[in-house]
Write a protein that binds this DNA or RNA. Structure first.
Lengths: 106, 106
DNA sequence: TGGATGGTTTGGCGATCGTCAAACTGTCAT
DNA sequence: ATGACAGTTTGACGATCGCCAAACCATCCA
């Protein structure tokens, strides 16, 4: 159970979060991770991007404070930092998740 | 009363909106414009950026569908497209405005 | 017909972005 | 130890970004 560096909840910046959510690939990751942990591998499967590119996106999301990542065994599990984000920017993630879900079919 | 090109409400894309909101200068514009129209000149006064840089930011916000701009006389008035954004991404702008207001003092 | 005013456009700058490929790190099973 | 597996890091690429300065466009007033 290895831990990776994450920003403290109070250090999460709105502009950084917005930037993290400004790329379609990252919005898709957020959507897939909204209902619980997902492994990097599972995320990469349905995205037709190179795994190193996906790794880059995981990092952007993590460093912005949008996601939390834990390593168990040789897998990394990604989840939304829903509680921290809700505390800092109430209502933001809920509306983003609704928006991304509504736009997904298109 | 001249009009400028704006995206149709249904063409507003989440990723583009997020990108428009990912810059501190643009977040500040959005904050100042949240309660009604403001002229470009008034916006530029409190931002210490070159007016051409501000003009660039107005354009990014407008082309993303975040703001609406109208020219009356030789002034341009910028306002939030609150109704269109609320219809397309319910709750998003409200939480963004709350977040940007909460972060502003920092 | 000027000239002043309010903004935009163009062009250029260094910095960052998204992408891929190749090499690398860490974990587990054999 | 060896090898497979999951994912990251590094380096490179073209594209975009934020910024400024200078030139430009449109509107109004005298």
């Amino acid at each position: 159970m290895r831990f990776l560096p994450h920003p403290a909840a109070e250090d999460i910046r709105l502009a950084a979060v917005m930037h993290a959510l400004s790329d379609p690939a990252r919005l898709d990751i957020v959507r897939r991770v909204a209902d619980g942990e997902v492994t990097c591998g599972a995320l990469a499967e349905e995205a037709d991007l190179h795994k190193s590119t996906m790794s880059h996106h995981y990092r952007v999301l993590r460093e912005a404070g949008v996601t939390h990542t834990v390593q168990r065994g040789r897998l990394r599990y990604v989840r939304l930092r829903r509680d921290d984000l809700d505390a800092r920017f109430p209502g933001l993630m809920e509306s983003v998740l609704n928006a991304v879900a509504a736009e997904a079919p298109a």
